[in-house]
C-alpha cells in the first residue's frame, strides 16, 4: 500500500509530519467518541470535542502533505505526461515540480502572514474555549514548510535530471 519513504533528513521530516498527522487521526476519533459517550450516557457535553477535533483536521491535512507528496500519492493527470519520451518527460517533470514548489511557497508565505497577524492581534476563537487561534494555525505553517522543503529537494533533483538527461529519479 503506502510506500515507505526513507533517505536523508528531508525524508525523516516528512515521516515525522505524517506520524503526527496519524496521531491526530486517532486523537480526533477518540475526542468525537468521547462527545458521543458524554451526551448519550452522562447527559452532558465535553464542550471541547467539536472545536478541538476541527483543529485536528488542520493537523492531519497539513502535517501529512510532505509525506503524501514525497511518497507519490498526490494526484496528477497522466494523459500527456505519461506519453512523453523520457527526455521530454524529464523537462515536464522539472516544470511541474517548479509549479508545485511555487504554489507551496506562496501558500507558506501568506499562511505565515495570516498566522502572525492572528498572534499579534491576540485572536481567540469565539466559541466556548477562546483558544488563541495562532496555535492551531501554526500547524498550517509547519505543514506547508515541510512540504516546501520536500519540494525544494525534489525540484533540484528534477532539474538536474532534465539537464543531464538522466532517467527519472523516482520520486513520482
Amino acid at each position: 500500500m503506502a510506500p515507505k519513504i526513507t533517505g536523508g533528513w528531508t525524508g525523516k521530516m516528512a515521516n515525522s509530519g505524517a506520524v503526527i498527522a496519524a496521531a491526530a487521526v486517532v486523537l480526533s476519533t477518540i475526542l468525537v467518541l468521547a462527545e458521543v459517550v458524554a451526551r448519550s450516557i452522562f447527559h452532558t457535553s465535553t464542550m471541547i470535542s467539536v472545536e478541538f477535533s476541527s483543529y485536528l483536521l488542520i493537523v492531519i491535512t497539513f502535517l501529512g502533505l510532505a509525506y503524501t507528496q514525497r511518497s507519490g500519492q498526490m494526484i496528477h493527470v497522466d494523459v500527456l505526461f505519461g506519453a512523453l519520451s523520457p527526455r521530454k518527460r524529464a523537462w515536464a517533470d522539472a516544470l511541474r515540480h517548479t509549479a508545485m514548489l511555487a504554489y507551496a511557497s506562496i501558500a507558506l508565505w501568506y499562511v505565515s502572514i495570516f498566522t502572525w497577524r492572528s498572534y499579534t492581534l491576540d485572536q481567540v476563537s469565539s466559541s466556548l474555549l477562546r483558544t488563541p487561534q495562532y496555535l492551531p494555525q501554526l500547524f498550517m505553517v509547519l505543514g506547508l514548510a515541510l512540504l516546501t522543503v520536500e519540494l525544494i529537494r525534489s525540484c533540484l533533483l528534477a532539474w538536474r535530471d532534465a539537464f543531464h538527461g538522466h532517467k527519472q529519479h523516482g520520486t513520482e
Binding site: 462527545e35 451526551r39 447527559h43 452532558t44 457535553s45 465535553t46 464542550m47 470535542s49 467539536v50 472545536e51 466556548l128
Partner: peptide
C-alpha cells in the same frame, strides 16, 4: 433532561442550571 444546543459558555451554564444537558453541535 432536555438536550439543548447552546451557543455560548453562558448558555451552557444556564442549560446546566435547568438540569438539562448542554450539547455542542456544529
Amino acid at each position: 433532561g432536555l438536550k439543548i444546543r447552546g451557543l455560548t459558555p453562558e448558555h451552557s451554564a444556564l442549560i446546566a442550571m435547568l438540569n438539562a444537558a448542554p450539547a455542542t453541535i456544529a
